[in-house]
Amino acid sequence: MSSIVQFDNVGLRYGTGAETLSDLSFSLRRGGFYFLTGASGAGKTSLLKLIYLALRPSRGLVRLFGEDMVTIARDRLPGFRRRIGVVFQDFRLVPHLSAFDNVALPLRLAGVSERDLQRPVAEMLEWVGLSHRSSARPATLSGGEQQRVAIARAVIGRPEMLVADEPTGNVDPEMAARLLYLFDNLNKLGTTMVVATHDLHLLSRIGSATMMRLDDGKLQDPTGLLRHPPARPDSF
């Protein structure tokens, strides 16, 4: 079994305050589907930020794709970040870019030519039901539409791992089901999924998903399954 994310005794502290995250030790296996739950303020977003390389831990070891991310040179980070798709809780769309250009941004940064990106971006917008809004700017989109653009942007580059922070928080149940279907399909294609959510219905829809629960910055892992995950059934 290969782990795509490995945390060992990780702690995170903002400034000089108390630790937001304490003693996190877990492994996420490549191709797994993980739901991250916990009360507001439990540290879900902070943990996701450590995973998608927006923060460095205050202590401990973080390994992604088999590489130590704590001591890695800064100029090597972009290469790893391109392998991770992120759906931010607050969407973080670029305000002056259209929906199309927001979705195309990861491809442009990866050096894909304008000609080659037109079709996948159009298809992705069609899939999230926003073909008719492709030229609209984020300020003119509803919360749900912005969230769909954010999801399209996160998955357009076929990342190895998708990190989503409350991805269905602003969409109707039908769209939530479609997004979950997309996530499940991406996962079946080999994308590791890490989804932070409050939505209990979401948790029940992916039977194979592993649950991770954060309480006051500590990961609840009474059985030690997260720290020492079992081998995948298909590896026997």
Binding site: Y52, L53, A54, R74, D75, P78, G79, R81, R82, V86, R92, V94, L105, P106, L109, A110, R153
Partner: peptide
């Protein structure tokens, strides 16, 4: 700053 942060998180290098 916000746009640059987003670009960084999507894998943009400082050079880009």
């Amino acid at each position: 700053g916000e746009t640059i942060d987003i670009m960084h998180l999507m894998g943009a290098s400082d050079r880009q």
